[in-house]
Amino acid sequence: MSDKDQKSLAVAREMVQAWNDQNWDKVGELFAPDGVLHSMMLDPIEGREAVASRIKALGAGVSWIELEIEHIGVIDGRVYMERMDRFVYNDHRGNVPVMGVLVINDDGLVQLWRDYYDRAQLLREMGVDDFTH
């Protein structure tokens, strides 16, 4: 495995730990200034500030979260991460399987993070009708 691949894996694991610690500021800081967060069922969120705002809004309802990595690896310079996201959101306990793809830039920041999951299942598990802000 190349040094760059190892560095990319380390950044991905740091991102997961920031989520698990509910350190929303750190999550935002790990994105590149022009980084993109794209939950594939929604329009992409572009720019560190917009991503950080979205994450903080979501995090406001989270009393506990664990992004449990089931499998992680680097293919063609991208980090592929299969995980089970477990959380308590506004007193609703939920579990959602997720497949994430991260592109880490040369500065060690997330340039692009795409997540694939069943949005209807996520909303049911969160106990909400919609979450788009």
Rank of each mutant, 00 (worst) to 15 (best):
D91R: 15
G108K: 00
L109D: 01
Y116E: 03
V98Q: 08
V11C: 13
V101L: 12
V62Y: 07
M81K: 03
V36E: 04
L37S: 03
V88W: 07
W19Y: 14
V103Y: 04
D118M: 06
M81W: 09
G108N: 01
Y80G: 07
L30I: 11
A12L: 01
S2N: 14
L122F: 13
Q17C: 01
G28T: 04
A18T: 02
Q22F: 03
I65Y: 02
Q17W: 01
H133S: 14
A32W: 06
R114E: 08
D130M: 02
V96A: 06
R48I: 05
E49F: 08
A57Y: 09
H92C: 09
Y80A: 06
M41P: 06
D107L: 15
W64T: 11
D130E: 07
D43S: 13
E46A: 04
E70A: 02
V98H: 11
E29S: 15
W19K: 00
K26M: 13
G28C: 11
A50H: 10
E29Y: 05
A52F: 08
S2R: 13
G108P: 15
M84V: 11
V16L: 06
A12Q: 05
M40A: 04
Q121H: 08
G28F: 10
R119Q: 07
V128R: 06
V101P: 00
L58K: 05
F131L: 10
L102K: 03
V103R: 14
D91G: 14
A50K: 12
E46D: 02
Y89G: 02
E68R: 07
W19G: 02
A50L: 02
D115L: 13
D118Q: 10
Q6Y: 12
W113T: 07
L30P: 15
A57K: 14
Q22E: 13
R93S: 15
M15G: 07
G77P: 01
M81G: 04
E66C: 09
Y80R: 10
S63K: 08
D76A: 10
I72K: 08
A57F: 01
G94R: 00
D5I: 06
V101M: 12
D106A: 15
F131A: 10
V88K: 07
V103M: 11
D43A: 12
E46R: 12
Y80F: 11
I45F: 03
V128Q: 10
N20F: 12
G59K: 00
H38I: 02
E70Q: 03
D118K: 03
A52R: 13
P33R: 04
A60Y: 05
R78Y: 05
E82P: 00
G108Y: 04
D129A: 07
W113Y: 14
A32Y: 03
K56L: 00
Q6N: 11
W19I: 03
S2Y: 11
N105F: 10
L112S: 09
R78F: 08
G61P: 05
W24R: 12
Y89V: 06
D118Y: 07
R13Y: 09
D106S: 14
I45V: 05
H71C: 02
